[in-house]
């Protein structure tokens, strides 16, 4: 059972919004006393998903939530876009797969950096990626 303790949604359309969102995630991570290593992992994961949203879907929304599992607190980030969607999610999750001539490590790398990772996508409708990082997990 995961409870949401606070919720904040940011529209991400410009390059500046990316920096702003990353800073907000950092602030919340510091507030719930997340360790430095986990903070860095979470912010890097956020950076990957924000970049994907900007690059492949022309922007979207990011929701930052403080969540509790009873034992520990954490941060849940939800990235929602109305972009073209991903036709083959399994392929997109492979290391090195990229349609953008980049390293193709954003999605699979993010999955390794966080505790929970969920991706849903419909071609022509958009993509939603949800991740959770526990403060000490």
């Amino acid at each position: 059972m995961i409870l949401s303790l606070s919720k904040d949604t940011i529209e991400v359309v410009k390059e500046q919004d990316v920096v702003f969102t990353k800073n907000r995630v950092k602030e919340v991570a510091v507030r719930i006393k997340m360790g430095l290593v986990n903070q860095t992992r979470l912010i890097t994961a956020a950076s990957e998903l924000l970049r994907n949203m900007m690059r492949y879907a022309n922007g979207g929304k990011c929701t930052i939530e403080v969540v509790s599992s009873g034992r520990t607190n954490g941060i849940r980030l939800t990235f929602t876009d109305k972009g073209p969607g991903i036709p083959d999610i399994a392929k997109a999750m492979e290391d090195g797969f990229s349609t953008g001539k980049s390293l193709g490590l954003g999605l699979p790398g993010t999955k390794r950096l966080v505790n929970e990772f969920d991706i849903r996508s419909n071609v022509g409708e958009g993509t939603t990626v949800t991740i959770i990082k526990w403060a000490n997990g």
Binding site: L36, V37, Q39, T40, R41, T44, E48, D95, L103, L105, P108, G109, T110, R112, L113
Partner: peptide, 13 residues
Amino acid sequence: RPEIAQTVVHLGI
């Protein structure tokens, strides 16, 4: 920094 080194490894770079 150590935390960056770890993150880079996890990303698979």
